[in-house]
Structures are given as C-alpha cells and as structure tokens.
C-alpha cells in the first residue's frame, strides 16, 4: 500500500502561539494542537474514518516533571496537571474540535516507528486517512540524563510535526 501526503505542518519553539484552554505550563499540548489544527483545518474528511497516531519518546516531560517536583517538595498537586497528565488529553481535545471518532493512538517511539504504525493502521478498510504527530520537548535535567542512558540525542528545541496521510488513489 502506498500513502499520499495531504497536509503537513511543523512548529518549533520559540513561537507565538495561542494557549489551549484547560492546558497549562507545558508547550507539549499547544504544539500538538498547532500542528494537528494546521493539517486538519479546512480539510474535507470523515471523522470516523480518520485515525490519529502520536509519537513522542519522552512524552510531556514538562508536565510529568513539574508534577513530580511538586510531589518531592510536598506541595499539593494542581488538578490541571492531572487532566493533562497523558497525551490522551490533547488528542481528546483535538478529536472534539474536529469530530474525530476513529482510533487515537500514542506511542513512545521514534519517527520511523510512527510511520510504520501509521501504515499498518491505514490498511484498515474502515479508515481513509491517518494524522501522524511527532512531538519532542528539549531536555530537562531528568530527560537529559535519560537520553544519555539510552545513547540517544535529545532535540535542541521543542519541535512538533504532523502529516495527514491518506491511502494513495490507486489503492482505494
């Protein structure tokens, strides 16, 4: 099966961007929202035939480590951090905005694995398209240490990229 890129978007920090209501502190969620919206806005698609696959090796470490440092300091958690503790939340926000009722999948992985998963998901005859989102934040002290232990290179700045992929016409 071959795929066709219908839309593409990328964003890096620092950038001026609107906050996403209900999401605080971390750039992870606004960046996901930015690239997803840029790919989906104005596109004609059937929400129950669209999947979203998000990949991030380290995930939203800003939220994770802010919550953990509050815990270490004996401070009360901010309930908003609970609400945005997983990438599910921003995917749920995007799904509501664009009425996407197909599969929402998130991975801890590299881009190579992301596209392999997207390709396989798109073999499902119930689906026409898949939105891939890769997002990685620049390292904090914990993720910098984890990157070193994994022998991987961290990104120099926050970066998010999205592709709206659809089955090529000859496959439809």
């Amino acid at each position: 099966m071959s795929t066709h890129v219908r839309a593409f978007a990328s964003v890096e920090t620092p950038v001026d961007r609107a906050a996403v209501p209900g999401f605080v502190e971390s750039d992870f969620n606004p960046m996901v929202h930015d690239v997803a919206s840029a790919c989906l806005a104005g596109q004609d698609f059937d929400g129950d035939r669209l999947a979203v696959v998000l990949a991030s090796l380290m995930g939203d470490a800003t939220t994770t480590d802010l919550a953990s440092t509050l815990l270490a300091a004996g401070q009360v958690h901010n309930p908003l951090l609970f609400m945005q503790a997983t990438a599910n939340s921003i995917l749920g926000y995007v799904s509501r905005e664009f009425d996407i009722t197909g599969p929402l999948i998130s991975l801890s992985s590299t881009d190579h694995e992301l596209f392999a998963v997207a390709d396989l998901v798109l073999t499902d005859p119930d689906l026409d398209a898949v939105l891939t989102i890769s997002v990685e934040l620049s390292p904090n002290p914990r993720t910098a240490q984890a990157y070193r232990m994994l022998g991987a290179s961290p990104p120099e700045r926050d970066v998010a990229t999205a592709f709206l992929l659809e089955r090529a016409t000859e496959d439809m």
Partner: peptide, 18 residues
C-alpha cells in the same frame, strides 16, 4: 520520583516506555 527526591538516577531509563 527517585530522581527528583534524591537525585537517584541508576535505573532512570526505565522511566522511558520505549
């Protein structure tokens, strides 16, 4: 938790799902 509480980093890689 161990990293931020005590600076313990020995098995920190296990905090990464991949």
């Amino acid at each position: 938790t161990g990293f931020w509480r005590t600076g313990e980093a020995g098995e920190l890689a296990d905090s990464v799902p991949a």
